[in-house]
């Protein structure tokens, strides 16, 4: 992922300035500052939930920065015959646009995609984060929630951007309401009718042992009671984790590295935290990448620091997402009524 043309001298220069006191970064940030993060939800009209995230857009030039697009799409899966799993499943995939990595061969790009996909998939589709409302008919039909992320541009810190975009898209996801229906033969006639599962009258006095009508009592299919763009939000949407990447350059560490900074640090610690409540925190993923070593005592300090940074990012993101909710739902509705 490193920029192809970072010379040894350049790397040494960046390292020395990061380790200087006070530390210096090319864009004037302190070690723990993030670049500006821009986020917009609902950018893909045909997706069930979507978000577009940019870290470090240059305001004057109107471009630059790491840009990630995330979108979720729901599909009905058959549990009995198809690939479906009872209770639904979540599958993530990351695609890297070749324009974001112009110096990479297509094989290297494929491998990068694999690696990014693996960490997202292992983290987000873990059973401990599974949303509860992905089931349609228990044992028969369920939703497949596919989360697709596209890296449109990479200016460093792609992991944090991916996790934030994933969280925003999953937050934005609406699952269509479904209602189970069943087909039932009327006692007297042969005509069949559609009955709402809720309204089926109790069949209490079955006399014949050959009466097999009870077998087909389970719901056979489902219908969508409302429009496709309505629906309920995904369960547990405030649990999705955020990731902070700690770039380690002993004795210091810094956040939100740009590409040249990434190229000059050898070791990174990725921490994905989720904060189900104000007091609790749970680690959802941890990875160490690069060719350096750490000791356990150092790791403990890094985890404590990482938790603090992640909490800030998590709350800032949640605030923004609630803001987006209001902008897109409440304000849009008001505008519609005025018209």
């Amino acid at each position: 992922m490193a920029a192809p043309s970072t010379s040894k001298a350049e790397k040494a220069y960046i390292q020395a300035s990061l380790q200087a006191s006070p530390p210096l970064r090319a864009d004037g940030r302190t070690l723990l500052d993030f670049r500006t993060i821009l986020l917009e939800t609902g950018v893909a009209p045909l997706a069930n939930g979507s978000a577009r995230l940019n870290i470090g857009k240059a305001t004057q030039e109107g471009g630059g920065g790491t840009e990630v697009l995330a979108a979720t799409k729901l599909e009905v899966e058959d549990v009995e015959t198809g690939d479906g799993v009872d209770g639904g499943r979540l599958v993530c995939s990351v695609t890297c646009s070749p324009s974001a990595y112009p110096h990479m061969s297509s094989i290297a790009l494929d491998e990068l995609q694999y690696d990014l996909t693996t960490i997202l998939n292992q983290t987000l589709s873990h059973p401990s984060l599974h949303p509860k409302n992905l089931s349609i008919l228990p044992g028969k039909k369920s939703w497949l929630l596919s989360l697709d992320l596209v890296v449109l541009a990479d200016a460093g810190n792609v992991f944090d951007a991916l996790f934030m975009a994933a969280r925003a898209a999953l937050w934005d996801t609406k699952v269509p309401r479904t209602r189970a229906i069943q087909y039932q033969t009327r006692r007297s006639g042969y005509a069949s009718k559609n009955t709402d599962a809720m309204e089926v009258e109790g069949e209490s006095n079955i006399t014949s042992g050959f009466d097999t009508r009870d077998m087909a009592r389970a719901a056979a299919d489902f219908e969508l009671p409302d429009y496709w763009d309505e629906g309920e939000v995904l369960d547990g949407r405030d649990r999705w984790p955020v990731c902070v990447t700690l770039n380690l350059l002993p004795p210091v560490h810094f956040l939100d590295a740009t590409l040249p900074e990434e190229a000059s640090t050898t070791i990174k610690l990725l921490l994905a935290f989720s904060f189900p409540s104000n007091t609790q925190s749970s680690l959802q993923a941890m990875r160490l990448t690069g060719s350096g070593e750490v000791v356990l005592a150092q790791m403990k300090l890094l985890m404590a620091d990482g938790e603090r940074y992640a909490r800030e990012v998590f709350h800032a993101l949640e605030l923004k997402l609630r803001d987006e909710d209001i902008r897109r739902n409440v304000k849009a509705r008001d505008k519609f009524t005025v018209r």
Binding site: S274, L283, A285, M286, R287, L288, E293, V295
Partner: peptide, 28 residues
């Protein structure tokens, strides 16, 4: 993963729901 001869850690992989205390406890 680590080198016990040097007391260093070379790789950490974690997945699923764990509190930071549990993580440190397991690593120890």
């Amino acid at each position: 993963a680590g080198m016990p001869a040097l007391g260093t850690i070379t790789n950490v992989w974690q997945s699923g729901n764990m509190t930071p205390t549990q993580v440190i406890q397991s690593m120890e």
